[in-house]
């Protein structure tokens, strides 16, 4: 911690969020046998790793990482992932969507999007490695189904989420009891907003993949979003590629994560841009959430992140 900014009412909001997340990491370390951190190389998972490092300092993080690899990766993000794993002496598990497609277990979708295809490799990796607590970077401010999510969210052997049967969660008393084969999804960033994440990243001077900052990139327009041209299947014949100054607000599968026009090249500029934005980060950049009113709810029920 760099400063304990004490407001008249106790901890400053970033210190309070940090303390809460660390408390959650330590609860899991104390209660579970085989936890794992979902790590995509996106800013929320980078933030989770940073908080986990702080929670167990001076000892190393006692959990491995799990990356569900769609095969449609930004090279900068994979390079970042590998550097982070090496720097902190972590173990990395990779569940590969491409491998499932090659084996014929999963089929490519007509729209080329692999985001929904991640659920099966994720679930099977959890079962195979017998992970009992799975940290995800989901935040309640992201989406309205997520606003109803618990910090400790019980999943059955198929990873299914049933919003009508969630355990009540009171005070900071998290209930991690589960049967063999079940696991608990744990969301230490539940109470963070996008702006909190960026403010904290700036305060802690956390390194991010370059694609979060403005750069020139070859993109094309699909459904009102700037997608990166690449092997994954874009652009189609009627779509034209152009060079634009963009940055990514979220990082996911290349086929459904859009860039936004931006000149924000530094953390302070990114924060100023988000403060002024009139779109949520998912509304601006995620094609999969535009599918229907309950797209996220449906994917979550099936075991998605």
């Amino acid at each position: 911690m760099t400063t304990t900014a004490e407001t008249p009412y106790g901890l400053g909001h970033l210190d309070a969020l940090e303390s809460e997340a660390v408390h959650i990491f330590r609860e899991v370390a104390g209660e579970f046998e085989r936890p794992v951190i979902l790590f995509s190389g996106g800013k929320d998972s980078i933030l989770m790793l940073h908080l986990a490092l702080k929670a167990f300092t001076p000892a190393p993080v006692p959990f491995p990482l799990l990356h569900v690899d769609t095969g449609h990766n930004f090279p900068e993000v994979i390079a970042y992932r590998d550097r982070a794993v090496a720097a902190h002496g972590l173990t990395l598990h990779v569940a590969s969507v491409q491998e499932y497609i090659d084996r014929g277990v999963l089929r490519e979708r007509p729209d080329g999007t692999r985001n929904p295809l991640q659920t099966v490799p994720l679930t099977e990796a959890i079962q195979h490695e017998r992970f009992d607590a799975v940290f995800g970077g989901g935040r309640r401010d992201e989406e309205k189904a997520r606003a109803k999510e618990r910090v400790f969210s019980l999943r059955d052997e198929f990873s299914q989420w049933d919003p009508r049967r969630q355990r009540p969660e009171l005070w900071q008393l998290y209930n991690g009891r589960h049967a063999p084969g079940e696991h608990v999804r744990v969301f230490p960033l539940s109470n963070w907003t996008e702006l909190d994440v960026w403010q904290y990243i700036a305060r802690e001077n956390i390194e991010l993949p370059e694609i979060y900052f403005a750069h020139r990139r070859e993109v094309f327009d699909r459904g009102g979003m700037w997608l990166t041209a690449g092997d994954w299947g874009g652009p189609k014949d009627d779509e034209t590629v152009e060079k634009r100054q963009v940055r990514y607000r979220t990082v996911g599968d290349m086929s459904c994560t859009g860039a936004v026009d931006s000149d924000a090249g530094t953390l302070d500029q990114v924060i100023a841009e988000i403060t002024a934005s009139r779109l949520t980060e998912r509304g601006a950049t995620r094609a999969d959430d535009k599918l229907s009113e309950a797209a996220m709810e449906d994917r979550k029920r099936e075991g998605y992140f």
Binding site: T4, E6, G10, D15, A16, E18, H23, K54, T57
Partner: peptide
Amino acid sequence: LDVLGAAVDVAPAGAS
């Protein structure tokens, strides 16, 4: 006393 990597003499309520 150590608040997430920083040694302190006094820690406030709410701190991990």
